[in-house]
């Protein structure tokens, strides 16, 4: 605030026009900045606008263009159980399952890391940080081989646990940071009343960090929902595959003709993620809440 109020004063004094809010040069730079931003925004929005417009276009092409006839036929064409609802349900099971497992395991792990001074705690956190950096694409070939050995290939639970494990490092990191901000004095009160550490965690700490838990869960959910490569490699039967994989198969089969349907399917599949992102910004009060999160 101080910068915004002092700068015009300096400028006004220098240009000698007291009373005018900003000098002409500052005004010109501001106009230029706004214009450049609008141009960049336009360039960024174009590829996405195609998805939106094509999904309502009766004769959609690959190019952005206003439709001659607006229709919802593309949506009704794809809304069949095997094409849309089952893959979306699978995606939900994968995402909610790995989200739930990740949150529970991360909260358990974060508690000792946040509350006790442990000799190896630091090394554990280093390994966790190292895990957040590991490129998951790099380990998919060995993971496939591991799944063959463990007989977990084409298994939904196996894939859920794997996805939970890959999002665990970032989740532990985030959860520990949220937990660090819960004052320890409240637990001490619970301890003096004879509560165990786990009881204190459940009754005192968790209720106080509900927004943090929600952010971690949504973060894992969104990542799993959008993940294409992991289920693409680990799940083989079409009836188990999530939307990300079935939409790719749809693209391979009909993508070259039914652009409108492909776009409608993409929109339907992307909508929950966009909604959840808005929810996270509401919960945490910042539009850039997930900035600390590494995308898969």
């Amino acid at each position: 605030m101080t910068a915004q109020t002092t700068a015009p004063v300096v400028q006004a004094r220098r240009s000698g026009t007291v009373g005018q809010l900003a000098g002409p040069r500052v005004k010109a730079t501001k106009v230029a900045a706004n214009l450049v931003l609008l141009v960049i925004a336009l360039l960024f929005v174009l590829p996405m606008a195609w998805v939106l417009v094509a999904s309502f276009d009766a004769s959609a092409t690959l190019s952005f263009g206003l439709p001659d006839a607006v229709t919802t036929a593309n949506f009704s064409a794809i809304m069949t159980p095997e094409l849309t609802w089952l893959p979306l349900w699978n995606a939900f099971v994968l995402s909610a399952g790995s989200g739930a497992i990740t949150v529970v395991v991360a909260v358990l792990a974060a508690y000792p890391l946040s509350r006790y001074r442990m000799r190896f705690g630091k090394y554990f956190l280093y390994s966790v940080l190292f895990g957040t950096c590991l490129p998951i694409t790099a380990i998919m070939v060995p993971v496939y081989a591991l799944f063959v050995q463990l007989n977990l290939l084409d298994s939904l639970p196996g894939t859920i646990f794997f996805m939970a494990a890959t999002s665990l490092p970032m989740a532990i990191w985030m959860t520990k940071n949220f937990m660090d901000s819960v004052p320890i004095s409240l637990e001490e009160a619970a301890w003096t009343e004879g509560a165990s550490a786990m009881q204190a965690l459940r009754r005192v700490v968790l209720p106080l960090m509900r927004p943090g838990i929600a952010v971690v869960f949504i973060f894992v959910f969104v990542q799993a929902w959008g993940n294409f490569f992991v289920p693409f490699v680990l799940l083989l039967s079409p009836e188990k595959q999530p939307a990300a994989v079935s939409i790719f198969a749809f693209f391979g089969q009909y993508g070259s003709v039914a652009y409108g349907q492909l776009a409608a399917y993409s929109l339907l599949y992307a909508a929950p993620v966009l909604g959840l992102y808005v929810l996270v910004t509401r919960i945490s009060g910042s539009a850039f809440a997930l900035a600390g999160a590494v995308k898969g």
Partner: peptide, 18 residues
């Protein structure tokens, strides 16, 4: 700008392909 990043990667890839 954030929307392009939040989109599921396969949808972003389709959009870029088109």
């Amino acid at each position: 700008v954030v929307a392009a990043w939040v989109l599921p990667e396969i949808v972003a890839a389709f959009a870029a392909y088109a």
